[in-house]
Simulated assay, not measured.
Amino acid sequence: MTRKYLVTGAAGFIGMYTAKRLLEQGHEVVGLDNLNDYYEPELKSYRLNQLIPYENFTFVELDLANREGMAALFAAEKFDRVIHLAAQAGVRYSIENPFAYVDSNLVGMMTVLEGCRHNKVEHLIYASSSSVYGMNDKIPFAEEDQVDNPVSLYAATKKSNELMAHSYAKLYKLPVTGLRFFTVYGPAGRPDMAPWLFTEAILQDKPIKVFNHGKMMRDFTYIDDIVEGVVRIQDEAPTGSIPYNLFNIGNNEPIQLSRFIQAIEKATGKTADKIMLDMQPGDVERTYADSGRLEEAVGYKPETEIELGIERFVEWYKAYKENKEH
């Protein structure tokens, strides 16, 4: 059965791959993005160009914070399901530009919830983040852990999204599923993330900044694994008196920053010049997903090894840069 989807953040990293998978399955997808300049717009154009050739794809350039525009879009299109992946991303940038996070992540979540509520959307899936776990000492991080100590405004907005979604599920019986993503990486990933920054620097023989002296641990999750989780979970609309669900999507294997750097060195064939630094404000020392709940719900858990994922990213990065130069 084919359905009509709204995928927000369609020119974003996870949004593009999710939209592409749905299009390949024959569904109708309306992709929404405001194409902001938080990072290089050419990368967003590149991602959009992966979707434009599909006849069942429509692109809408619109800001989530535009209340009238969002209400009109929902009323006109009558989506069956909504996959809300758009957000102002980045922990460190939330310290420099806090209002961007309020507009995108709080007002934007509100316009999506209202659109779903008034237009009888059968299931809303939205992106939360592993950053909500903050300075959580208990590992691995499980969905039932307390998450009341965010260490960045970005994390606070994602925790707020979970509360907003839960209230709409309770008040309006809107089926909603939240997904806490753990450090997503892969081809066409964001330029402000470590895989891109480190690969670029190493290939250009520039030094890389290694925070917390390389003792950081991240549950790096490959993009294909994330998309598989999203696409499977969207068929599992929650039911009951409060139709709300929440899942971690992570690799269930934290990787030491030093191993991650070694994977890039191997893929690039070059040795990194490392500048060892202390922790940055807003950062957490480690992330570690308990993915048991997701596995139980859809019989799937991410498992791409970091070395393979990084090799694919570096291959893509080199080709992307080469194409840009010609």
Score class of each variant (00 low, 15 high):
Asp224Ala: 11
Leu35Asn: 08
Gly229Asn: 06
Leu62Trp: 01
Glu285Asp: 11
Leu62Gln: 10
Asn323Gly: 13
Asp192Ile: 08
Lys209Glu: 15
Gly309Trp: 05
Arg232Ala: 07
Ile310Gln: 09
Pro281Glu: 09
Val298Met: 09
Met279Asn: 02
Lys78His: 14
Val210Glu: 10
Ala11Asn: 08
Asp283Pro: 01
Ile226Ala: 11
Val227Pro: 01
Ile242Ala: 02
Val176Trp: 09
Gly189His: 08
Arg117Ala: 04
Glu315Arg: 15
Ser241Val: 09
Leu277Ala: 13
Pro302Gln: 06
Met135Arg: 10
Tyr185Ser: 06
Val30Phe: 06
Ile264Cys: 10
Glu24Cys: 07
His326Lys: 14
Ile83Met: 05
Glu42Leu: 12
Ala65Val: 07
Asp273Trp: 08
Pro41Cys: 09
Val82Cys: 03
Glu24Tyr: 13
Pro41Val: 14
Asn323Met: 10
Leu203His: 10
Met70Pro: 02
Val227Cys: 02
Thr221Gly: 03
Phe247Met: 04
Ile139Thr: 11
Phe141Cys: 13
Val231Asn: 05
Arg21Lys: 15
Val284His: 02
Gly299Cys: 09
Pro191Glu: 15
Tyr154Gln: 04
Tyr222Gln: 02
Arg312Lys: 15
Phe182Met: 13
Leu153Gly: 01
Tyr126Asp: 03
Val184Leu: 03
Lys158Pro: 01
Thr183Lys: 13
Leu163His: 12
Glu77Arg: 09
Glu315Gln: 15
Ala142Gly: 06
Arg180Asp: 12
Leu171Met: 13
Phe141Pro: 00
Phe74Asn: 03
Ser104Val: 00
Asn136Gly: 02
Leu62Ile: 01
Val231Trp: 09
Arg286Ser: 14
Ala319Asp: 15
Leu277Cys: 14
Asn248Met: 08
Lys20Trp: 14
Ala71Cys: 00
Gly12Tyr: 11
Ala71Trp: 00
Met216Ile: 10
Asn149Leu: 02
Trp196Glu: 11
Ala272Met: 07
Thr199Gly: 06
His166Cys: 05
Phe260Leu: 12
Ala76Val: 00
Pro243Val: 03
Ala142Leu: 04
Ala194Ile: 06
Gly186Ser: 09
Lys4Asn: 04
Val132Trp: 04
Tyr5Asn: 00
Gln262His: 14
Phe182Asp: 14
Val7Gly: 05
Ala194Pro: 12
